[in-house]
Amino acid sequence: MVKVFDCPKSLTDMPTHYCPGCTHGIIHRLIAEVIDELGIADKTVGVAPVGCAVLAYNYFVCDMQEAAHGRAPAVATGIKRVVPDGVVFTYQGDGDLASIGCAEIVHAAARGELITTVFVNNGIYGMTGGQMAPTTLPGDKTSTSPYGRDTKKQGFPIRVSEMLATLDGPAYIARVSVHNVANIVKAKRAIKKAFEYQIAGKGFTLVEVLSTCPTNWGLTPKESLEKVQRDMMPYFPLGDYKDIEAGEKK
């Protein structure tokens, strides 16, 4: 019998701790497949965030560092400067990257740091139990916006990809989604391009992935995927926000 589906070599063959219907697992797999396809597992160093993906260092079969909350881009900077021929990636949630680690990601991008960031935007603080994130949509209820995010009092979501695309340091910035197969395929292509650009020394690269949090959204896995398409995608449009090979586009 021919095996047509297997665990990528760069992914540890073990059950993850993620909730049913959460897309962290899919995103992990895409990164692992890209690492396998590029044949870079032996020179890749990953940086895990503080958030639901805090245990990512268990899931990738490559050297890993666990960073303090939001500091992954700084940690990755330190690693990459010491191992310039290595491939360094950070894996970060929206609380980690767009709130407490906002300075770190902006300046890593501005420096054109030769790292790849996979930014998982699920619009909520998953790990701490569903509090409001800087990416929580207006009107959405969370445990710290129980009446729905009121933009008059709680401000507006941050569109990270658009913001970082204004800088000169990044070589590639894209927003993708993993809510259906077609988009999963596109997401993988974007992650692969980001890693390739890093390896080619083109500049900072980031792929923002719209993700789900059924547990804290209070939705079923299926409803969660529908919410990504219905509510998140209009506010966070998919596409390439910067590609120095293709010229800038919106």
Partner: peptide, 24 residues
């Protein structure tokens, strides 16, 4: 060698963390 002026002391120490973790 490499000198980086970080965006803050918070970032600087975390760059140190990464570099030290990479054996430097």
């Amino acid at each position: 060698g490499t000198f980086v002026q970080a965006e803050s002391e918070v970032s600087a120490i975390n760059m140190v963390y990464g570099a030290a973790g990479a054996g430097a």
